[in-house]
Simulated scan of single mutants.
Amino acid sequence: MSCRPHGRILRRSVVVFGFGLLFSVVPLPVLHFETESVGAVEDVPTVTAMTAAQIDAARAATGEPVGADRVVAADDSAGEFSAIGFTFDSEPTAPVLVRVRDADGNLGRWQALETDDGEGPDAGSAEAGRSGTAPLWVGSGTGYEVSLGAGDAVGAKVVTVRDELRRVTADSTPVAGAATPPPFGIRTRDVWGARAPLSTSYASTVKLAVVHHSDSGNSYGPGDVPGILRSIQAFHMDGRGWSDIAYNFVVDKFGTVWEGRGGGIDRPVIGAHAMGFNTGSVGVMVIGDYTQATPTAAALESVSTVIGWKMAQHLADPAGTVAFTSGGSTKYPAGQLLY
C-alpha cells in the first residue's frame, strides 16, 4: 500500500502553515479610502470690462479702493469646489475680488482676497513661484465671478480646490513612539488628512515666531477645520507650487492646535510664511479673518502656548528681543537687520 498521497498532503499542510506563519510575522499593507484635497489650476475665463454700476457695487461691498480700470470674468459651470484662489505672473497692483455661487445657484457678496507676496517662501528657494492670493474657503461652491485690475488679468489663473476620494496604502507597521501624545494635545497631520510634503528643509534653530491669520471666514464649525486645512495645503502645493502647507502650526478659533508643515513638531522645519524670515522662524496661523474681528481668548491662549513651547525647545526667550537679518523680501531688502 502506497503512502505517497498522504505525503503530498503533509507537504501541502507544511507549505500552508509556512505561509500562515509568514503572514503572522510580516505586516501587510492596509488599503483604505480617504479624502484628499487637490487644486485644479486653469486660466481665468475671458474677461469683460466692468460697468460703472458694477464697480460701485463692488466698492460698496468690500470697502476696497476699486478703480475704474476693472474687468470681470465668470464661470458658472466650475463644478463643486471647497476653496478658491488666484495666481499671477507678478503681485497684483489692484484689489482681487471674488464672489461665489452656491449649490442653489445664489451668487454671494463680493469679497476681497488678501495678496501679499511677503507671506511666502524665501526668494530664490526651490518653492519660490507664482504670486497669488490667499485661498478663500467656501465650503461648497459651484461657480464664481472674479474682478481684477485690467493689467492683472493678463496671465491670471484660478485655482479651485476639490475633495477626491482616493485609495491609499498605509503602512501597518507600528512606529516606535507614535503612541506618545504630542504636547498640548496637538492634532497631527494624519488627523486632518494632510498630503505628504514634496520636500522638507530644516534650519539649525528657531528664534523667531510669526503669527498670521487665514483671511477667510469666521463662521466655521469644529468639523470644518480638517477640510479648511486640506484646502489651504492644496492651494499652496498645487496653485503656488510650494512643497507643503506654508505654516508650521495652525490654531482654530476654538483653541485647538494643529500640526501644519510636515517634518517634525519639535524640529526647526523651514516654512513658507514670511519671505526672508522663514529660516529660523516658526509660523503660526489662526484660521479666520481678524482684520476687524478680535481673536477668541481660546485662540490667543493656544497661540501663546505653542510659541512658548516651541521657543523653549530651542532655548529662546519668547518674551525677549531678537536680532534677525532679512534674507530678502518685498518689504525688507536682503541684509537688513530687524529687531
Rank of each mutant, 00 (worst) to 15 (best):
V72S: 10
M50F: 01
F88I: 09
I84M: 08
S77K: 14
A68V: 12
T48I: 14
A58G: 12
F86Y: 12
A52M: 12
S82T: 04
T51V: 06
I84P: 13
T87G: 04
I55K: 04
I84N: 06
S82F: 00
P65C: 04
D69W: 00
A49T: 11
T62S: 05
T62Y: 03
G85F: 05
S77W: 00
T62F: 02
A78W: 07
G85H: 06
D89G: 11
A57R: 11
T48P: 01
T48S: 15
E64S: 15
A60L: 09
G85M: 07
G67T: 08
A61S: 11
G63W: 08
G85I: 02
A83K: 02
G63Q: 06
T62Q: 05
D76W: 03
V66M: 01
G67P: 00
A78I: 08
A83H: 02
E80K: 08
P65F: 07
V72N: 00
Q54T: 09
A58P: 12
D76K: 11
G63V: 13
V66Y: 04
F88K: 03
F86C: 09
V66P: 03
E64I: 01
R70A: 10
D56A: 15
A57G: 01
A74M: 13
D56E: 14
D89K: 02
F86W: 03
R59V: 10
M50S: 08
E80H: 03
T48H: 13
G79R: 11
A53K: 13
S77C: 02
E80Q: 11
D89H: 00
T62G: 09
F86I: 04
F81N: 09
E64H: 00
A73G: 10
A60Q: 09
A53V: 12
G79H: 06
V71N: 14
A49H: 06
A74D: 11
G85W: 00
S82R: 14
A68Y: 08
S77Q: 14
A68E: 15
V72F: 05
A61N: 05
A83D: 02
A52Y: 06
G67D: 12
S90M: 00
A61L: 07
A78M: 10
A78F: 05
A83S: 07
A68Q: 12
A53I: 09
P65W: 06
G63R: 03
A49K: 09
T62P: 08
A68T: 14
A73I: 06
A60K: 13
S82C: 01
A68C: 02
A68G: 13
G85E: 01
P65I: 05
A49L: 11
A52H: 11
I55M: 03
V66T: 09
G79P: 11
A61F: 03
A83P: 05
R59L: 07
F81E: 07
A52R: 14
G63I: 11
A52V: 13
M50C: 15
A78Y: 03
Q54I: 06
F88R: 04
S82G: 03
A60R: 14
A61E: 15
A83M: 02
S90Q: 08
A52I: 08
T87Q: 05
